[in-house]
Each structure stands twice: as C-alpha cells, then as structure tokens.
Design a protein around this nucleic acid. Structure first.
Lengths: 220, 220
DNA sequence: GGGATTTAATGCGAAATGGTACAAAAAAAG
DNA sequence: CTTTTTTTGTACCATTTCGCATTAAATCCC
C-alpha cells in the first residue's frame, strides 16, 4: 500500500518479491526509509524550518535525487504526512478489532497516541496534523483539506467507539455520541500540544485515567 | 502594563502623559502598533516562515529600525507573544469579575477564545501559544518554558471557575476540579486547532454549547 | 545657529535556500 | 563490448535571509 507493486505477474524467481529487476543504476537508498527519515525531520521542525539540505543530509540522498524521487519540498511533505497517517492507522485498526469495553478501548487509543506524540530521539514531537495546521502550511488549501479530513476521521473513530459501547450496553443510549467524540478529539489535541511542550508523559497519563472515567460516566 | 511608564513624577505639562520629551529624531512609528502588526504576521505564518522583510513591510519600519527597537527576530517574537498574552488577559479578568454562574462563565470564556482564534484579515489564526509549541520555536528552552507556563495559567483559570462554582453551590463538592480544568483546556486547544484549520465558527459554537453542559453535569 | 543625540534610510555582505543542469557511474539489454 | 537506461554527485543559479555598517535626517539643548 505504501510502495509500488508493479504487477508481479508470473514472477519466476522467488527473490524477495520486491525486486522486479530494474534497469539502470541501482538506488543507493530505500524510498521507504527515506520517507520515514524525512517525516522524523518534518515532525521535529515543521515545514518552513526544515530545509532541503537538512532532508538531504538525514536521508543520505543528495538534493537532485530527493527531487527526482519525491518531487519538491511540498510533495515530500505530503508524502511524509501520508506515511504518518498510514502508520497510526494500523494501530487504530488493531484497537478497533480488540474485544474490549469502551473504557479500555479509549485508554488504549489515548495511550497509542501518546506513544506517537512522545516519539523523538531528543524531544517529543506531538501530532503531525496539529503541527501542520499550526504552521504556515495551512495556507495551502489542499493541505488544509487533508488536515480537516484527518480531524473528521478521528471524530468518526471515537464515534464508532461510543456507538459500539451503546450497542454492547456499556453506555446508556442517552449519551451524546457526537459531543463525546469531539471531546475525545479535544483530549487528543491537548495530548499533542502538551507532550510537544515537554509535559512529562506520566502527568498526561494520570489525567487520561480520570478523563476516560469522566467521558464514560453514565450520564444523560 | 504594556508600555513604558518612565516615572511621571511631577509632570507639569498635561499633554498626553506619554511624551517625556525625547531628545533626538522622533520615531516614525508607534512601538505599540508595530508590535501589534508583528504579532498579526507571526500569528499568520509562524516563526520560521515570517521573515524580517515581511515584518519590516507590515510595520513600515525598515529592518535596522526594527532591530534597534526590538532586537532580533527572536526578541520580537517574544515581545509579540507577551502582547498577545496581555491582550487576552484583560478579557479573562473581565469574565472573572462578572457575577455569573459557572456555565455562563465557561461559555463566555470559550467565546472570547473563539473571538481571538478566529481573528485574521483573511483566515483564522488559532492560539499563538499552540502555534508556537507546534513550531520549531519550541526548540528554544526559554520559549518552551513560557508556553508551559501559559498552559498552567489556563488550567488555573479554569480551576478557579470550578472552585468558585463549588463555593457558590452551583456544582457539587465531589467534582474533580483539576481534571475538569484540564478538560476545559483541552477544549480550548481543540478550538484553536480547528478554527485555524478552517472549521466554521458556528460549528464550534454548537459543540461548545453541549460541551459546557457535559463539563458541568453534576456528577460525582 | 551649532553641537549633541536619536532615529531613518540606503545598501552591503555572507550565508542559506529551493531548484536545476550536466556529466560521471552503475547496472541491464543487445 | 556497446548501447540504453536509471541514478548519483558535483556544480551552479537566482533569490531570500539575517544582520550590520554607514550615511542622512530630524529634533533638543545650549
């Protein structure tokens, strides 16, 4: 899904299945890991503060190669975001598949977010989408639309949690699913901001423990 | 509080009380409005994406004057933040002084935030502190500390609201004040992110209406 | 009016930035 | 071995950026 596939029609040689015998000089880099390194750098400094030279250095690719492989800075930024989104999507799906009650599900959801937000060799990085919205990149209409979509998807994910909880009898039917979902999204935003600001993870976890309880209190 | 005062000891001349007879060539700019214009620009694009040339243009001051008056870009950024903080502080104080119940107080609080977040000649700007944390400026320890302090102050402000509500019998003594306060801060963060992302204000106001109800539901 | 003082305005310069042209290199195909 | 194809690596360009040095202007004090 992330990488090219190129119709492995009748691949006779059972190599690694990811090498369709390219023709020219072989690449000195792995596109996948390069995007990952670019993502890490963008998450550290944001769009404007990350230069192509920085990206070139961290990926080990020189600038023309970067350009040829991913396009200009903006394209690389968008590809990095898609990688970020793909990465956390698999975690969310795993949490959705688990047969657990709504409180545990929310706890795991927030905990996975903290994992992602506190990632960073030196300092926590927060949420890429939140960072993007806060940056100048939001002036780009296409990028803005992607970020709004991201937030809606998160609302929907939480909405699914709460609706499922009602269906399973864990919460009363009187709860306001949309409002609770947006509240959960708000908590996510707060985790992003504060973790990036340097608030210790344990503090945020302590808050989460009580916040989940508050969200799931059986109230009309 | 915002500007210099310079001991108006026995000011004989009742001018405007803000002109202590400077000596050299008079300024062609008003430091106050210049900072305001710089703030508007920083809020639009963030730290890295705002150049001194942009700031020079918007303030009408040429770069050497900017430098002489406020210091380098970082100093100007910090001064802009202080201006931002001073501006909203007066609004918060007004809300605190009003003799209203907790729901109305929270509503006004959030509404004032929306006023500030949706400010912008072309597009909404969000919260300056949130933007700063999300930017590369967070790498600066001093700026990071200022932002953490900002968040703590907001928590405290909400904490005062809830404690006062309990004292006035509007909420039961069993509420968890710190958790509710942080939840309110989380809502503030969400408003900042979404307004800047372009979510219409009416949508956010609709959410707020219900969110305040949820926060103030008399639950243990 | 003359000097002192403060600011404005011009412009320089070194470095960084995004982007690209072009030749050398490395592999497969013939 | 030669050609073709793809990527690498060096070098370059135009622009922007931050910062400062220097000169010109405007005002106050004597």
């Amino acid at each position: 899904m992330v990488q090219k596939k190129k119709k492995p029609v009748v691949v006779a040689k059972p190599e690694v299945a990811t090498e369709p015998k390219r023709r020219g000089r072989p690449r000195a880099y792995e596109p996948d890991v390069a995007i990952g390194q670019a993502l890490a750098l963008f998450r550290k400094g944001g769009y404007a503060a990350t230069s192509l030279d920085d990206l070139s250095e961290v990926t080990g690719m020189n600038r023309p190669s970067l350009y040829g492989a991913f396009g200009d800075k903006r394209a690389l930024y968008i590809k990095s975001y898609q990688r970020y989104r793909d990465d956390y999507t698999v975690r969310v799906i795993a949490i959705f598949k688990a047969d657990i009650d709504v409180r545990e599900r929310l706890r795991r959801f927030f905990d996975a977010a903290l994992d992602i937000y506190t990632t960073g060799d030196t300092a926590p990085r927060g949420c890429f989408a939140v960072m993007t919205v806060a940056s100048d990149a939001i002036a780009d209409p296409e990028i803005g639309a992607m970020m709004r979509e991201n937030f809606v998807e998160l609302d929907d994910a939480f909405g699914w949690c709460f609706k499922t909880a009602v269906a399973r009898g864990e919460l009363p039917e009187t709860i306001d699913v949309p409002t609770l979902s947006q509240m959960a999204s708000a908590i996510l935003n707060m985790l992003s901001i504060r973790s990036r600001a340097g608030v210790p993870r344990v503090e945020l976890e302590a808050f989460l423990q009580k916040a989940v309880g508050l969200l799931c209190r059986s109230s009309a």
